[in-house]
Amino acid sequence: MTSMDQEKGHIVEPAVLARVWGALVCLTIGLVSASLASPKLAVLAMLVITPAKAWLVFHYFMHLKYEGPLLKGMVLVALLTLVIFISMMFLDLGFR
């Protein structure tokens, strides 16, 4: 990718976007099926499939895949901050 791509925005082909949408729909069907199958599978699906869906949206629809290291780093720091807060909450509940 050239610096010009980063500056003016990368063009994602409609076929790629359609495939990502298809994957998102399939993952949603998987998530619902797992939640109907068993409680353990439902929790597992929620922990795996939901972040995977969010990753697809961030990566392709929001063009993060085509961004430079600065934006990617900023998003990583924001998400890590959120993970730290969530971990602190569960640590507090776990050791109460």
């Binding site: 998530l31 939640s35 699906a45 939901t50 969010a54 949206v57 629809f61």
Partner: peptide, 17 residues
């Protein structure tokens, strides 16, 4: 708009499933 979508992606399993 995509972020609004991502937030709903997490709301679905938390409330409905």
């Amino acid at each position: 708009w995509h972020l609004v979508d991502v937030i709903w992606i997490f709301l679905l399993p938390l409330f409905y499933l």
